[in-house]
Design a binder for these strands. Structure first.
Lengths: 340, 340
DNA sequence: AGAACGCCCTAAAACGTTTCATCCACCGCG
DNA sequence: CGCGGTGGATGAAACGTTTTAGGGCGTTCT
C-alpha cells in the first residue's frame, strides 16, 4: 500500500542502502551477484524511486515546462509537438501549462514551476515578456526561452518569426489584389505578436498607398468566437465604409470571420477577402481555403527546446541567442481573386 | 544566486525555522508582529518554497496529470480545457502529457508520474486500459480516472461517451440517406473508441439492411494525414466497389478524407458522403461542413477531474463511478443529400 | 614481507520542508 | 500564593534520496 523505500529494498536484499542507490545510478560499480539480488528485491517490492527526494538532494529537476497562450490553438500544439521531440531525446519530461492569455494564470503557473525548480521554461508570455517574474526565474538559475517572441533586450534566448515581415507580406498581397479598405482584426494589442503584425501591415500600406485605409477591429482574444464577434461588428458598418478585405491576427480569428461572413451571405473572397496568420493545419481545409502567413510551427518548438537545453547544460558560459525565422505567405482561395 | 532556504529566512528574521514554516502554513498561529518580520525577510531574500522538500515531507503532490492520445487533436485539447477549470478551482496544477498513441511513450510518462507521486492521473490509454501499470498506480494510492473510455471492470472511475450508440447514429443516418456501400475508416483497432464506433455501426447496419456492405479501411492513427492516405487508397478501388459514404473514427481523419477526395475532383456529398466523430470546432468550418457525432468534450474533462478529486479526497471510502454521456449526431453538408 | 592498489561495500551527512512535543511567560482564578 | 490554561515560539525528528569518505580484503609489485 504505502510506497516501499530504498531502505526496505536494502534490507530485503541484505545490503546497505548506499548499494541500492548505486545499483540504480551506477550499475557497474557493483558486483553482478549483488546487483542481481538488489534488482530482484526491487522487482519483488515494486519499488519506485521517489522523485521528490531525488530532486531535493540533486537540487535539479528533469522536467521542462512550456507555457502557452492557448492549448486549444493548433498553432501552439504544433509548437509543443516540436519541443517534445527534442526534450524527449534529452530524457527529460515536457509538461504543458496553459495560461489562456490570462496574466494571473500565467503568474500562478510560473510560481508553481519555480517552486518545483524545473530545469527550464519555454514560454510565450501573455504580456511583453519583460516581467520581473521571468527575470526571477533566470536569477534562480532556471533558464527561460521566449517562444514566438523576439526579446528586445538580451537577457534570455528567444525564437521568433518576423511578425513585421509577416504583416507586410499579408498587406502587400491584399494591396496587390486591389483592396483599398482593409481591416485588421486582432487583440489584445498587449500581445506583441498582435501589435507587430499590425505594425508590419500598417508600414506596408503607408509605403505603397497612402490613400488606402487600415481600420483596426480589436478583439478580446485570439479565438474563433472572437473572430465571429468581430465580423458581426464589421457587418454593421455602412456599406461604403465596410472593408473589402480583412487581415486577421491569427487563423482562429480568420476562421471565425469566415463563418460569420458566409452565415450572412457574404461571398469570400468576392465580397470580402480574408488572410489569416499561422497557417494551422485547418486553414487549408476551411470552407474557403484560407490564405495565411505560415510560421514554421514545429521548428519553432524544436529550436526553442534546443536553446533551452543548451543553456541548462552550459550554465554560466552560455551566450544567449535569438533565432528569427522568416514567415511565408500561402495564398489560397480566401483572398485570391482580383477585385473591381 | 542559489535559492534561499527557510533557514536563512529564519535567521534573517531572528526567529526559529519552525516559525517561518508556521507563517507559511498557518499564518494566524503566529503573532502579527513576528509574522510581519518573517514576511519582510521572505520578500527581501526572494525566498520561494522548495516543492520537492515539501512533497517529500508531505508524501503528496499537488499536481494532477492528464495523459492524452494526441495533443494536436482539438478533441483532446478541449477535454484538457475542461479538466483545467476544475483542477484550478481545487488549487492544484494540471500538467498535460502526450502519449502520441505510442505505448512506450505512455509507459514512460506513467513511470515518471509515478516517481513524482502525483495526486492523480486522468488518462485516455493507448491500449485497452487494463494495463497492470494503471493498477500499480492505483495500489500506490494514486487515483486513476479513465477518460473517454468506459472501464469494463470496476477498478477505477471513468467518464465516457457511448461509442456504440455514436457509431449506430452515424450509420443509421447514412443508411437513411440511401447509402449501401459504406466504409469505416479508422485505426488502430486496439484503441477501444475505434473498435466500438465500428461495432456500433456494424450492428446498426446488420439490423437495418443485411445486404449493405461495411468495408473497413484501417489507418495507422487518427490524424489528418492518415485520413488522406486512407482516402487515396479508397480511390484506387474499381468504381463498382467504391463506397458511396465513409464514416470516420474521428474528425481529423474525416478532414483528411475530405481534402483528398476534393483534390481528386470527387464531390462531397454527391459522390461520397462523409461523417466524422467528435464534432471538433473545425468540423463545422470545413470546406464542406462536416457531419459529425458530437461528444461533450469539455464536459468530459470537467467530470473526469471532478471524479478524480473526489477520489483523491475520499481515500478508501471512495466508490468508483462510471459516467456515460450520450453522443449526438450533427448533420451538416458533408452527408446531407439524398442519393439515387 | 610489506607497501600499494583496486574492488566492493558501508556508514553517515546533507538536501529543505513539515510537524509534534515542549517550553516559556503571562494571566486569571480560587 | 500556587495552579491550570493559553498564545506564541522553539528544537528536533522525519521524509527518501545521493554522495562522499573511508573500511575490509585480496592481489600485485618491489
Amino acid at each position: 500500500m504505502t510506497a516501499a523505500s530504498i531502505k526496505e529494498v536494502a534490507r530485503h536484499a541484505g545490503v546497505s542502502l548506499g548499494t541500492v542507490s548505486n545499483v540504480l545510478n551506477r550499475p557497474n560499480a557493483v558486483a553482478p551477484a549483488t546487483r542481481q539480488r538488489v534488482l530482484d528485491a526491487i522487482a519483488e517490492l515494486g519499488y519506485v524511486r521517489n522523485d521528490s527526494a531525488r530532486q531535493l538532494r540533486a537540487g535539479q529537476s528533469r522536467t521542462i515546462a512550456i507555457v502557452v497562450l492557448d492549448v486549444a490553438n493548433p498553432f501552439f500544439t504544433d509548437v509543443v509537438c516540436g519541443a517534445e521531440q527534442v526534450v524527449e531525446e534529452a530524457d527529460a519530461m515536457l509538461v504543458v501549462c496553459n495560461s489562456g492569455e490570462n496574466d494571473a494564470r500565467e503568474r500562478r503557473h510560473l510560481e508553481l514551476l519555480e517552486e518545483q525548480r524545473v530545469r527550464g521554461v519555454l514560454i510565450t508570455p501573455v504580456g511583453h515578456g519583460q516581467q520581473p517574474r521571468l527575470d526571477r526565474l533566470h536569477e534562480r538559475g532556471i533558464p527561460v526561452v521566449l517562444v514566438d517572441r523576439g526579446s528586445g533586450r538580451a537577457g534570455r534566448c528567444s525564437v521568433a518569426v518576423d511578425d513585421l515581415l509577416g504583416g507586410r507580406l499579408a498587406m502587400e498581397h491584399l494591396l496587390d489584389q486591389g483592396h483599398r479598405r482593409i481591416a485588421y482584426l486582432g487583440g489584445p494589442f498587449s500581445i506583441p505578436q498582435v501589435a507587430d503584425r499590425h505594425a508590419g501591415a500598417a508600414a506596408a500600406l503607408a509605403e505603397r498607398d497612402a490613400d488606402a485605409q487600415l481600420r483596426i477591429a480589436k478583439t478580446t482574444n485570439l479565438t474563433v468566437a472572437a473572430g465571429r464577434r468581430a465580423a458581426a461588428e464589421l457587418l454593421t458598418l455602412p456599406a461604403a465604409q465596410r472593408p473589402t478585405a480583412v487581415f486577421c491576427a491569427n487563423d482562429l480569428i480568420a476562421l471565425g470571420v469566415l463563418q460569420e461572413l458566409t452565415k450572412h451571405g457574404r461571398r469570400v473572397p468576392d465580397d470580402v477577402a480574408i488572410v489569416g496568420y499561422d497557417d494551422i493545419e485547418f486553414a487549408g481545409a476551411a470552407a474557403i481555403p484560407l490564405s495565411s502567413v505560415r510560421q514554421p510551427r514545429e521548428q519553432l518548438g524544436r529550436t526553442a527546446a534546443q536553446l533551452l537545453l543548451e543553456e541548462a547544460d552550459a550554465g554560466a558560459t552560455h551566450r544567449h541567442r535569438h533565432v528569427v525565422f522568416q514567415p511565408e505567405l500561402v495564398i489560397r482561395a480566401s483572398s485570391d481573386r482580383p477585385r473591381r
